[in-house]
Simulated scan of single mutants.
Amino acid sequence: MASVTMTVNGKSVSGEVEGRTLMSDFLRNDLRLTGTHVGCDTSQCGACVIHVNGEAVKACTMFAVEADGAEVATIEGQANADGSLNVIQQAFQDHHGLQCGFCTPGMVMSAAALLKENPTPTEREVREYLEGNICRCTGYHNIVKAIMAASGQDVSAIAAE
Rank of each mutant, 00 (worst) to 15 (best):
S12I: 14
A47G: 01
I75R: 05
A159D: 13
Q153T: 06
E131T: 15
S110C: 08
P105I: 01
D68P: 04
H95Q: 10
T36K: 13
D25K: 12
C103Q: 03
Q99M: 05
T42H: 14
I147Q: 04
V108I: 15
H141L: 11
M148G: 07
P121R: 03
S84P: 00
C103K: 03
E128K: 13
E76D: 11
F92E: 05
V38C: 02
Q93A: 12
E76P: 02
A91C: 03
E18V: 13
E123W: 05
G46N: 07
T120C: 09
N133R: 03
A111N: 09
L130R: 05
T74C: 03
G19K: 14
N86E: 01
V17Y: 06
T34W: 08
C60N: 00
E55S: 13
A112C: 10
Y140K: 08
C48W: 10
F92T: 02
Q90G: 01
G46C: 01
T36D: 10
N86K: 07
A112L: 14
E66L: 10
M107C: 06
L22H: 15
S24A: 15
E66G: 06
V17F: 07
G69M: 03
A73L: 11
I88T: 10
C40D: 04
H95A: 01
N53R: 06
A56K: 09
G152C: 12
C45D: 02
R127W: 09
G152L: 11
G83M: 01
C137L: 07
F102A: 01
G101N: 02
M6D: 05
K145P: 08
I88G: 01
D30F: 00
G35N: 10
P121V: 07
C135E: 02
H141Q: 09
M107N: 01
G46T: 05
T21R: 13
A159H: 12
A70W: 04
P105L: 01
S14P: 04
R32M: 11
M6V: 10
D154G: 08
T74I: 03
E131V: 12
D68T: 11
M6H: 05
D94F: 04
E161G: 13
R136S: 08
F92Q: 02
K11M: 12
R124V: 15
I143K: 02
N142T: 08
G106K: 00
C137A: 02
A2G: 14
G139W: 05
E66R: 09
K145V: 13
A59H: 03
T7S: 11
G10K: 09
H51D: 03
K145M: 12
P119V: 04
G83L: 09
G97H: 04
I75D: 06
Q99S: 02
E76R: 07
N53G: 00
N142D: 11
A73M: 15
Q99R: 05
G10V: 11
N9A: 12
T7V: 15
L27N: 10
Q153H: 13
F92N: 01
F63A: 09
V49A: 13
A81E: 14
M107A: 10
V108M: 00
N133K: 07
D41T: 02
L130I: 07
N86V: 10
A64R: 02
T61H: 06
Q90D: 02
S43W: 08
S151Q: 06
Q153M: 10
H141A: 08
C60A: 06
L98D: 02
A149W: 12
M62I: 13
A2S: 15
R124E: 15
A70E: 05
L115G: 08
A81Q: 07
E76W: 09
T7N: 13
